[in-house]
Write a protein that binds this DNA or RNA. Sequence first.
DNA 1: GTAATACTATGATAATTATCAGCTTTTAAG
DNA 2: CTTAAAAGCTGATAATTATCATAGTATTAC
Lengths: 230, 230
Amino acid sequence: MDRSRCENCIVRQFNSLRALSKEELKKVSDSKTTKTVKKGQPLFEEGEKLNGVYCVRDGVSKLSKLSANGKDQIVKLASKGEVMGQRSVIAEEHSNLSAVAVSDMEVCFIPKDTISTSLQKNPNFTLEVLRHMAHDLKEADDVIVNMSQKTVKQRIAEAFLYLKNNFGEDGDGFLALTLSREDIANVVGTATESAIRIISEFKKKGLIHTSGKRIGIKDERKLRDLADGF
Amino acid sequence: MDRSRCENCIVRQFNSLRALSKEELKKVSDSKTTKTVKKGQPLFEEGEKLNGVYCVRDGVSKLSKLSANGKDQIVKLASKGEVMGQRSVIAEEHSNLSAVAVSDMEVCFIPKDTISTSLQKNPNFTLEVLRHMAHDLKEADDVIVNMSQKTVKQRIAEAFLYLKNNFGEDGDGFLALTLSREDIANVVGTATESAIRIISEFKKKGLIHTSGKRIGIKDERKLRDLADGF
DNA sequence: GTAATACTATGATAATTATCAGCTTTTAAG
DNA sequence: CTTAAAAGCTGATAATTATCATAGTATTAC
């Protein structure tokens, strides 16, 4: 079986592409190009015009936006099965976010036309994309509330739990996705030093353990309570 | 002309309902019910299962979410032409937000079935809804960045400019939409006292003028600069 | 292997923001 | 109309968070 064909790609099960017909999938597969992106390399930049979407086969990308004060706010982490750039392609606007790989990635680039055609011809596909976007919007609302109402300490606890739930742990009990301290700070929207200080504090309190930049969760229950304000 | 019919409703031009066919519009119009909602009254509550969507004909509603610490975070203000609750109906989930009128409102309730049928049968409509949601998602990203990276002072300045741009001013040079100090605080995610203090400061600096709870913008340029961090 | 560079860490201090308390003004109910 | 309740306001203080400075520790390039 040729795994480089979308028809055989497992990743597809997780995103809206699963609503495509066999015919359509073949077209997607014929028009797509596969890229590998090294950790730290950009996929696209804020303000760039996207000529297609990126489907993540492996690895993780951060989607971020530069704020007026020069800091990068990470809005979302996209991993296996997620499609990046669809918002811009659908609304026919330039991207409002930058995408940079936080681990080595393998992605498929699907040209805009292929997507647009299916959006116009296959209502099931459109509906599926719509459902996914509705879900993303709900998550965005939750992030807004967390950012506005929780303290930095709570947000960092929340972030660690999120990383564990979404990316899992490696064999040694560390979070499978290792982010730099700066990236952690940019996820929760705080100064790098503040994030580091709080990580040290969590370590002292026995909530987490660290080894270099790797972080492992030691007491999930207490972290949860902290994130919820108890 | 019977303005109570969707076919003749101007409001429709502003939202995704404009993509409906004449036939569909008639069905919508026949199945809808019109409600008036007094300022302060709820349209629906967080966690409630919505059996349809609300199309705003007049007035403004706040969409908010209760945070763990008991504060209400206002995520969006919906006014004439906007459709509320579509996210929940599309994703078939309970509402993640509460809607409460911040001014007297007139809204049309359109049952879920009517919407679902059109979503399945009319790809243009689905695509139009999708475009709107893509836009909402972009705005949500912007809010996340503002909430995470800007100071309370900047966020309040931003909020006043937003209110002016989206709801305009009355004849006396005050913002057409009057929010309580508490609502303003809940929009920017701060304590009511902090919001009041900053409003007083803006007044002293000649950026705004007030009369009771009404607020007018005096120096838009300086407010803009402040919001952008200069 | 070593120098340069980026990342992590911690202290000191300043700025921002929340909280609590008390008071005044406005609004709404009877 | 008047009285209770709600909303607005201000001060004092505490807690949180940012900033600046400095140093140790990894990483990477040559």
